[in-house]
């Protein structure tokens, strides 16, 4: 089977829609196909990375547990928009998992570097 690099782009907050879960499911599926996967968090998707999420209060399942299993699927390249964090008063040390901060130019470069981009 051929190999392509995949970039999963998250733009939405964790529980306002099903997109965050679909993005994670897609990332895991692509990893099962033994393709390299990176995940980029833009805009309100940075809220997916916060610790201490308690979605049970609104009858939803936590996404945080799924984030923790990513390394088991060899998904270790997690990127976040520095601007998205700054606009929301957040910094990487407040996030639940280690992520690499990228400025806008680096985000562009990251997208260019990948063969397949899936948007959520």
């Amino acid at each position: 089977m051929s190999t392509k690099s995949f970039l999963i782009i998250n733009r939405r907050p964790p529980y306002a829609s099903n997109l965050a879960r679909e993005a994670l499911d897609s990332a895991l599926t692509v990893a099962v196909f033994e393709q390299p996967v990176a995940i980029l968090f833009l805009s309100d998707a940075v809220y997916q990375l916060l610790p201490d999420q308690q979605p049970a209060a609104i009858g939803q399942k936590s996404l945080a547990a799924n984030l923790q299993v990513l390394p088991m699927y060899d998904i270790e390249q997690l990127y976040v928009s520095a601007r998205a964090l700054a606009e929301r008063g957040l910094s990487t040390d407040q996030l639940a998992v280690p992520v690499t901060e990228l400025d806008d130019d680096a985000v562009q470069t990251l997208i260019k570097q990948h063969d397949v981009v899936l948007n959520f």
Partner: peptide
């Protein structure tokens, strides 16, 4: 898996 295969 059908999406992953299609992307490839």
């Amino acid at each position: 898996g059908q999406l992953a295969e299609a992307a490839l």
